[in-house]
Structure formats: structure tokens, C-alpha cells
Design a protein around this nucleic acid. Structure first.
Lengths: 294, 294
DNA sequence: TCATATATCTGACTAAAGTCAGGAATATTG
DNA sequence: CAATATTCCTGACTTTAGTCAGATATATGA
């Protein structure tokens, strides 16, 4: 690591600190201090449990309580005890709250739009922002099992197909590859896991159940914005855990030698190369992994 | 502009706000609030005039005054009236202050190092950070005339040579190109201007005086991290102003058709293509611009 | 020289964020 | 069931940041 590299990060920190400082103090000029505004936005962002919001924003319980009281007094939110555990309270926006939240969203969007508009190469700027945001908020990337037909899951798979088409010498056409049945990638036959950061999809992986004594790993993809963070490894680990949960002990997958990073990951995490086990035209490498159970 | 793009910027803002929030509240754990810490760092970063620091940090004069008193009481800084205008006060670090500043630097460097170390593709991350920082801090990019032998000027020129070598079909070797005499790119014969952001060099351009009735523009370069911000245009405008100041009314330059952006800029800003006027092996395009004076 | 502008300082104030101790209600565990 | 833990609330407090109206000293231009 060179001193020049350090200097560059330092410069970035300065640029961002000052800019965000300016950005936040008058928090978008809706006459509400940063604290309540942050809480309102967290609730609008579909967070429901008080404790969850508190952890997300890193607030003291006393402070949090007061901020909630304030928003309640404004008529923007309603708080009620949780259904199964009535200590853990749940918050939701009232109609007025939803309106106020939308106003914040519109303002922030306008700000974002203006910033992009001033730049000559917006795509590059966005890609750079994605990468930085992922690196900064690494531990905020959440993995969730969803239905493979979920819009975010679809978005990931489409990005995956596009990337395959670009990277495979012979191109890629989904229609010619065996498209896994939705049923096979849902509990209890299998699973489909997506990685998201503040709602933006960053990666996916599917576990496809079969009746042949093993399950297959399909559609492992990580967004360029999140590469280098060990996300693929996390996704694979998650799939293995879920495989164990549904009683699967042998996993298989097919891949292509053009996908270096993925192949290297398989080899590094206990996968063993085996003979071709299907007649899909795209893969040229086949792996198996026996899970340690107990 | 798509909604997806907006969502990406919004996500970036969130990631950065929360991260920097965490980063700054206990400002690196040296038991000093953010305010005084920022001022100390601005002074350590070779800013000397109180008014300059105030503008840089965006502080109220009363607050600034108090923060200075505090640092003075700690024995970290000394304040004295300016030499030519005794209203504008100048600040400098005492020995203890320099030590404290160094401690902050070391902590921030360690933090940066840790962040880079956790990333699998640090170069890409740095490039992304540079781009974002430049876009955020666009108006903080300063242009200064320096001696062409200045280390930052040299750094820019070396980056320029490397880029030429990569972009020109026939490569590039400085030794074969006519290296302008240092004298010719200094006042009053010419000028050399660099663009920096918080000390990081982002671009350069040289004005080389000749005895043939015109001056030449040489070494126009903008760092990849700062492209798309109109910096080349700013550099050229600066050179034109300086040319007028030293009484030059005709400018010439040579370029290569592989450098699309530069050539497009010349054509868009009043430069007219002319016949070859030197025997340098690299250029294949030649331009002239007559300055409007008065 | 006199009016005006500029740079900084001081005192009095407010708003916002955060801390801490303890209390009430509810859940969990041996 | 009793002891303990968890979740949230309340009140009293501190720190930090920031605002605003003068006061003071110095510079500038007619």
C-alpha cells in the first residue's frame, strides 16, 4: 500500500465529510432537524420495529423514544405493541406521515438528479458511487430468501444473463439453457437468496432441488458494484446452510471456465471437479461438494 | 435519467451519511469534538489565514473565534496579525499542535489503510472514490500557476506521458518529443497551471512562450478521476487569461486525433485547424486560436 | 480627514444531540 | 413461580453547534 493511495482515501473522506455536512444540517429544508428526519425516513423505508430502527441509526434508547414521541405529536406516525412480543413496538406512517415521507423522497431525488445532470459521464459516476457505497456499507448488505419471481430476484437474474452474454465466447441465450422451475428454487425443494443494500439488489444465488439425490447451485451473480467484498462467498455459505436445513448433503453446479472468479471460489471452498452431469450447452466445468452435517 | 439511477445515488448518499456520521462524531477518538478537530486539521493542512479557514469550513465568525481561543488555550496554535493587513490574522501550529495534528493524520491514515486492506480490488475502489470525490467537490478544485519543475507539476506530466503511451497507436517516448524549456513555461515567457483538490493533482496545462509571434499550449491533461467536470475547459480558459496578461494574442497547439475529447474541446472553443507547424513525430492535428483582447 | 467597509472578538442566547439513572411492562428460564 | 432479562419510557442533565447583536481595530476611497 502506497502513501499515494492513503492520500487518495483521505481526500475522499474530506470531500464527502464536508459535502454531506452541508447536505444534512438543514436536512433538505423541511423545517425538521436531522434526528426526526432520519427516523421518519427509516420508517418510510419499510422498517417497522423500534429496536430495528434504533440499531440501524445507532441511537440511544432515550433519544429514540423522544424522537418517536415528537413524530407522534406531529401526527406522522403511530406506534403499537408487537403482535407476538408486546415489548417490541411497531411503528407505521399515518397518511400525513406517508405524505411527508414522499416529500422528503422527492427532494432527495431532485438533489440526486441535479448532481447527475451536472456530470458529463453519469454512468461512470454512478458505477463509482455504487462501488464506494458497497465498500463503506459492507456489513449492511443483507441476504434474504425470496421467491425467484420477486422483482429484485428477476433484476439480478437479468443482470446475470447480460453478463454471461458478454463474457462467454459463444454468447448466452436463456432459452437454450435449462431454466430452473420456480418450484425447485423455493422452500422446501430449494431456495433463492438475494443480497441487497438499502433496497438495491447486489447479488443472488439459487438452490435448485432435484430428485437425483443432490441439489444444484444456479445463478450465482454479484453486481460489479459489490465485487471484492466477499459477497459471493457469503451467498454460497448461505445456500449451503439452507441446503443442510432441508436435508440436502450433496451439491452440484456447472460453470464456465470464462468465469474465473467463480471457478476460483469453488476450488477454494471445497468443491471438487467432476464429470459432466448434464447436456446444457454453456458449461464446460462441473463441480460437486459434500456437505459436512451435524 | 432513469429512476434506477436516482435510486443508486440515493443509496450512495445514505451509505456515506451513516458511515461518515459514525466516522466523525467521536472524531477519531482523541477526546476533541468535531469543530476544533476540523479547525486543527485545516491549519495543519497549511491553511494560514483565519478568513480562509472560515470560508473553507463554512463557519460563523463567532464560532470560529471561539474554536481558535479553545485551541490556543490548549497550547496547540498561535495567532498573530497578518503582515500586510493586520486585520486578517494568521494561525500556525505550535510544536504541541504539530504533534497533535500528526496524531490525527496517523489515525486517519490507519483507518484508510484498514478500509483498503479489506477490499479485494483496492485500485478500483480508489479510482471510484477519486471520481466521486471530484464530482462532489467540483468547486473545490483550485487552479494555480506553478513552476513546471514543481513535484505536483511533474506528477501530472508523468501521468500525461503514461496516458499518451497507452492511447497513441505508435506509443509515446518523451525523449523523441520536443520537451519544452522550463524557462518558456514560466512567467513572463509562459505559464504552467495545475489543478488540485485538497492537495491531490487532478490536471495540468502549460503555456510555452516562443519568439515566433505566438505561444503554444502544451501538456493539457486531466486525471481520469476528474473527467466530466469541465476541468479541461477551465484549464484552457486560465491559460488564455494568462496569455492575454503577458501580451500574447495568438495561440497554437498540436494534438493527436486519438485524443478525441481534447480535439472536440478545441473545436468547440474557437480553435481553428491549421497546417502542420512543427516536425514533432506524434501530433497529426494542428490548431490556432486568436484571442480577443481588450 | 471622514465615512465606510472589513476582519475579528465578545457576550448572551437557542437548538439539537446525546448521556445516564432509574422505572414500568412484558417475556424467558431454571 | 421467582429471578432475571429485555424493551421502551421518563426526567434531569451535559455537550456541541450555531446565531445574532454589538464592540473594536484596522484598512480604503472620496
Amino acid at each position: 500500500m502506497t502513501t499515494d493511495q492513503i492520500a487518495r482515501i483521505r481526500r475522499f473522506q474530506r470531500a464527502v465529510t464536508t459535502e454531506i455536512g452541508l447536505l444534512d444540517t438543514s436536512f433538505l429544508g423541511r423545517g425538521r432537524p436531522l434526528g426526526p428526519a432520519r427516523v421518519l425516513n427509516a420508517i418510510g423505508g419499510s422498517r417497522v420495529e423500534v429496536s430495528e430502527i434504533r440499531a440501524y441509526l445507532g441511537l440511544d434508547s432515550g433519544l429514540m423514544s423522544r424522537l418517536l414521541r415528537g413524530l407522534e405529536a406531529e401526527g406522522l406516525i403511530e406506534v403499537e405493541p408487537g403482535a407476538d412480543d408486546s415489548r417490541r413496538r411497531r411503528v407505521r406512517l399515518t397518511a400525513a406521515g406517508a405524505q411527508e415521507y414522499a416529500a422528503y423522497e422527492a427532494l432527495a431525488d431532485a438533489q440526486a438528479r441535479e448532481m447527475l445532470g451536472k456530470h458529463a459521464a453519469p454512468d461512470k459516476l454512478l458505477a463509482a458511487m455504487d462501488m464506494v457505497a458497497s465498500a463503506l456499507g459492507k456489513e449492511r448488505i443483507a441476504l434474504d430468501a425470496v421467491d425467484p419471481r420477486h422483482p429484485l430476484a428477476q433484476a439480478c437474474m437479468n443482470a446475470y444473463y447480460t453478463e454471461l452474454a458478454a463474457r462467454l465466447e459463444q454468447g448466452f441465450d436463456v432459452a437454450r439453457s435449462s431454466d430452473p422451475d420456480v418450484q425447485d428454487m423455493r422452500h422446501p425443494r430449494g431456495a433463492f437468496v438475494i443480497a441487497t443494500s438499502d433496497g438495491l439488489p447486489l447479488g443472488c444465488a439459487g438452490l435448485k432441488g432435484t430428485d437425483k439425490g443432490y441439489a444444484e447451485v444456479k445463478r450465482l451473480w454479484v453486481s460489479p458494484a459489490a465485487r471484492g467484498l466477499g459477497l459471493a462467498r457469503r451467498l454460497m455459505r448461505e445456500l449451503e446452510d439452507r441446503a443442510r436445513d432441508i436435508g440436502v448433503t450433496v451439491l452440484r453446479l456447472d460453470s464456465n471456465s470464462a468465469l474465473h472468479e467463480a471457478v476460483a471460489l469453488y476450488r477454494a471452498t471445497g468443491w471438487v471437479e467432476i464429470a459432466r452431469f448434464n447436456d446444457d450447452p454453456y458449461p464446460d466445468l462441473f463441480f460437486e461438494k459434500r456437505l459436512i452435517t451435524g
